[in-house]
């Protein structure tokens, strides 16, 4: 039997502290979300809610609840609308980016055409450009096209490609067998049919992994939507949460409402982590996000 050395015991203790500190803030958000607004300040040092209520969740979802706030403290944000906008933004970005990036990645990996390597190198080099350098001209472009506060403007910079997605998928197309492509070509299949019916289905796994990573990233995206999508009709969750904070004032914000909205907003991400934990961990380990 393995005996636990004092060194190992100390190691386990440190690991436990890491896990505790990683989860503590999220636990506290849940605690405040479950606390009646009038009790929020009385139990600051406690790890569990003193009074238990689901009212905060109900009211941020726009459902009838037993919690009444004065008009000055009531939320000016429609969270269900923001949730819908986040779903639309994420779905468009992820599906578009994966499809168009996969097309390009397949061509980079499997076809030869003049300028291919130069172009791929240019795509790679683009990962070096700080987002702020791009955001000012992109903002101006979107504004001049009259696309501020539209989903088109929101998704435009990322729906056609990101260098990361192209790079990620190219690696997988490079390593997949060519024999099936050749066989299909002999039977007269077009290049797009080969891509759509053979190459893409073989890479189901990596594409799903990329989809999960991109979905989390899009769901969390803040800077660009903050610049071009402030109107409530297209405002995504991350921007809505930050507006909520600045609009209810720093003095006496509606903490329990805010934390309830936060808990609702991270449920999709936590669900993905619980279900696809292994894929997420392994892909981040090898590539890093972005």
């Amino acid at each position: 039997m393995k005996t636990i050395t004092p060194q190992a015991a100390l190691g386990y203790l440190v690991l436990a502290v890491f896990v505790f500190l990683s989860l503590l803030p999220l636990w506290m958000a849940l605690k405040i979300a479950l606390t009646h607004p009038s009790d929020v300040y009385t139990s600051a040092a406690s790890l569990t809610p003193e009074t238990f209520t689901l009212g905060n969740f109900l009211r941020v979802m726009g459902l009838p609840s037993d919690i009444e706030l004065t008009a000055s403290r009531a939320s000016p944000i429609d969270f269900m609308l923001a949730l819908r906008n986040s779903v639309i933004y994420t779905a468009l970005t992820v599906s578009g980016q994966i499809f168009f990036s996969a097309l390009a990645a397949y061509a980079f990996a499997r076809m030869s055409f003049p300028g291919r390597d130069l172009l791929f190198f240019a795509f790679l080099a683009a990962t070096m450009i700080p987002s702020m350098v791009l955001f000012i001209p992109n903002f101006i472009l979107v504004k001049q096209l009259g696309l501020l506060n539209t989903f088109t403007g929101l998704v435009a910079p990322t729906i056609l490609m990101t260098p990361f997605a192209v790079f990620f998928l190219r690696q997988f197309f490079l390593s997949s067998p060519k024999e099936l492509d050749e066989a299909a070509r002999l039977e007269g299949a077009s290049q797009f049919q080969i891509f759509w019916r053979i190459a893409l289905p073989i890479q189901k796994g990596p594409i799903a992994t990329l989809g999960i990573l991109l979905a989390i990233q899009s769901w969390n995206e803040f800077f660009w939507p903050f610049l071009v999508g402030r109107d409530a009709s297209v405002r995504v969750m991350a921007v809505a949460l930050s507006d909520f904070m600045s609009q209810t004032g720093r003095g006496n914000p509606d903490w329990s409402g805010l934390m309830a909205a936060i808990v609702l907003s991270i449920i999709p991400v936590i669900t993905l982590l619980v279900v696809f934990g292994r894929q997420i961990v392994e892909s981040l380990q090898t590539s890093g996000m972005k």
């Binding site: 999220l26 803040f222 991270i266 991400v269 996000m289």
Partner: peptide, 12 residues
């Protein structure tokens, strides 16, 4: 997976 959780929620 637990350790990576803080990274998967947004900066906001």
């Amino acid at each position: 997976a637990v350790i990576i959780a803080p990274y998967l929620i947004s900066n906001v």
